[in-house]
Amino acid sequence: MDNRELRECAAVALSVLDLTNLKDDCTAAEIETLCARAQTAHGATAAICIWPRFVAQARAIFGENGLIRIATVVNFPSGDLAVDEVVRETVQAIADGADEIDLVIPYRRFKEGDEAAVAGMVRAVRAVCPQSVLLKTILETGELKDPQLIRRASEIAIAEGSDFIKTSTGKVAVNATLEAADIMLQVIRDSRRNVGFKPAGGIGSVADAALYFRHASAIMGENWIMPSTFRFGASGLLNDIDAVLSGTAFSTPQAGY
């Protein structure tokens, strides 16, 4: 990839980035910094992704202009909460100002054969999300491992009304992979529904982002990548995007969420 292509890729990556801080010890001061970082000299990120306890703070900072969306997580990261508890989390997050809900499926129960647990969880959360609130369903593909399980989880999540399917929480040993992306994108294509894709965890450079862009374009078409259909969940990726767009560094693969 030459410098021009790298800069073009960086600009698109910025526009589809969910700038994330889901550290267990995240503080209000770090959220303030995150909100400021999301508004870069090169443009804004698509969203920030934060713990529910910080949603009201972020909404107060951003106001109601809607330029940068606020995503939060529920049933996160374990996927083990009861449906009614997850619904309460979701309702409160939306009341606090969340624009997007990233829901972890009960992936351990799903691995044991309980498809109904996944369908019921997604359906219940979808039911309390207004049309304006995106539901991004996290499959935790690194824990599912089996391609058939990843495929089936994707199908269920889409059938129950998910706006996006997302690979990972970023909290397990294996997070986003191109192999999982391939399966999930094929399911989206075959569903013929307007569903987006979000790889998350381990995407730390524009070079990494380019691999996912190529993969998505090959399956979904050249004009498919936009904030309404594609997001990256990452914290470190913005550093490399800034470096590339500022002309201060070349992109090299990096670790991290």
Rank of each mutant, 00 (worst) to 15 (best):
163 D>M: 05
237 L>S: 06
196 G>L: 08
250 F>W: 05
226 M>D: 10
231 R>T: 04
246 S>M: 14
160 E>Q: 15
217 S>T: 06
218 A>M: 04
164 F>W: 03
161 G>H: 02
224 W>F: 14
193 R>M: 15
210 A>S: 04
210 A>D: 01
209 A>M: 03
225 I>T: 04
224 W>K: 03
179 E>F: 10
224 W>M: 05
239 N>M: 05
167 T>W: 02
232 F>K: 11
237 L>C: 10
243 A>K: 05
222 E>V: 05
213 F>N: 04
177 T>A: 15
210 A>K: 02
201 G>E: 05
230 F>S: 02
166 K>S: 00
253 P>T: 08
230 F>D: 11
203 I>Q: 11
194 N>P: 08
237 L>P: 00
180 A>Y: 12
180 A>T: 15
175 N>L: 07
248 T>P: 02
181 A>P: 09
162 S>Q: 07
196 G>H: 06
210 A>P: 00
221 G>M: 09
227 P>F: 04
220 M>I: 01
191 S>C: 12
228 S>T: 13
207 A>W: 04
254 Q>D: 12
231 R>G: 01
171 K>I: 08
170 G>R: 00
169 T>H: 14
179 E>I: 04
234 A>D: 05
253 P>Q: 07
221 G>N: 11
166 K>T: 00
170 G>D: 01
176 A>T: 10
241 I>C: 04
229 T>G: 01
187 V>T: 13
211 L>W: 00
190 D>H: 13
228 S>L: 13
190 D>T: 11
208 D>S: 10
177 T>Q: 14
166 K>A: 06
229 T>Y: 08
177 T>R: 12
179 E>N: 05
236 G>P: 08
209 A>C: 02
218 A>T: 01
222 E>L: 11
226 M>Y: 05
185 L>H: 05
217 S>R: 12
235 S>K: 03
171 K>E: 10
251 S>N: 10
180 A>V: 14
182 D>A: 13
184 M>N: 09
186 Q>G: 13
194 N>Q: 15
231 R>P: 00
173 A>S: 12
201 G>T: 09
206 V>T: 07
173 A>N: 08
226 M>S: 12
210 A>H: 00
170 G>A: 04
250 F>C: 02
176 A>P: 11
221 G>W: 06
160 E>K: 14
227 P>C: 03
181 A>L: 06
248 T>N: 08
186 Q>H: 15
166 K>G: 04
235 S>D: 11
222 E>T: 10
186 Q>Y: 06
250 F>Q: 14
